[in-house]
């Protein structure tokens, strides 16, 4: 159990570094935002699950669950607003209006 926990926490730490690496290397603010918010939250989810496997008690479990729930509930709203701000700041409003429609019609 502790081995799985260490592996999960190690993966989470590595993913956090990869997310920061993406923030450095990706070409524009919108792409960087993908790396930061999504990969960052996935990394934290792995770390939190790993921490729970280390100390599987109630008083740890509800706190870890609450952190994960807050992150999951707030991330879409924050990333939505930040993406809109980035689009406006990058002057992509026209591209936003003329964005092509992809995929078939829904059933």
């Amino acid at each position: 159990m502790t081995v799985i926990a260490v592996v999960l926490i190690g993966l989470g730490a590595a993913l956090l570094v990869i997310a920061a690496w993406g923030v450095i290397r990706l070409p524009d603010a919108l792409s960087r935002q993908h790396a930061a918010t999504k990969a960052g939250t996935l990394a934290l989810a792995l770390v939190l699950i790993g921490a729970f496997l280390f100390v599987p008690t109630v008083e740890w479990a509800w706190r870890l669950g609450l952190i994960l729930a807050f992150l999951m509930a707030t991330l879409p709203i924050a990333s939505h607003l930040l993406a809109r701000a980035a689009v406006v700041e990058a002057g992509l409003a026209d591209e936003m209006r003329d964005a092509p429609r992809v995929g078939d019609e829904p059933s």
């Binding site: 792409s31 936003m96 092509p100 992809v102």
Partner: peptide, 24 residues
């Protein structure tokens, strides 16, 4: 996403083909 970051993050790597799209 991790694969995209690592691929475009390598020195001389290609940036990902980003796009704005609409989906019904």
């Amino acid at each position: 996403t991790v694969a995209v970051i690592l691929k475009s993050g390598r020195p001389g790597g290609t940036p990902p083909p980003v796009a704005l799209v609409r989906v019904r």
